[in-house]
């Protein structure tokens, strides 16, 4: 599992790089770059930080990934997960931060 960073969208703010628990992202020429893609463990901390949704998460093919790209959008208490399938469909899941897990 790893992330992709859209260098056109990226504004180089460095928030993703600052928060990565593996310090795997670096800012080079004002753009975020994933320096060690194989060291990503899929915690998604970086995608939650990105203000322009340039960072997207995906599952590697070796663990059954199908090529979807995942990012989140925040609005008030809602953390929305958007899973963009390769065929263009988008699955959205809204999580209210004030609501607990039920199981």
């Amino acid at each position: 599992m790893s992330i992709m960073i859209d260098s056109i969208k990226c504004v180089g703010c460095g928030k993703c790089a600052a928060v990565c628990p593996g310090s795997l992202i670096r800012i080079e020429e004002k753009k975020a770059v994933i320096k060690y893609p194989k060291d990503c463990w899929g915690c998604t901390s970086c995608i939650k930080e990105c203000p322009v949704h340039a960072v997207k998460f995906y599952l590697g093919a070796d663990i059954g990934g199908q090529g979807s790209l995942v990012h989140t959008e925040e609005s008030g208490d809602i953390l929305r997960w958007l899973i963009e399938h390769p065929d263009g469909r988008v699955t959205e899941i809204d999580i209210n931060r004030k609501e607990s897990n039920k199981y």
């Binding site: 998460f57 599952l59 979807s68 999580i95 897990n101």
Partner: peptide, 24 residues
């Protein structure tokens, strides 16, 4: 309903499992 809840529960802890369910 349990499916729905599990999708959310895993996003809050290990997001790749939810993505795996959705992709499959």
């Amino acid at each position: 309903e349990q499916d729905e809840s599990l999708l959310k529960a895993y996003l809050n802890m290990a997001p790749s499992q939810t993505i795996k369910w959705i992709e499959s």
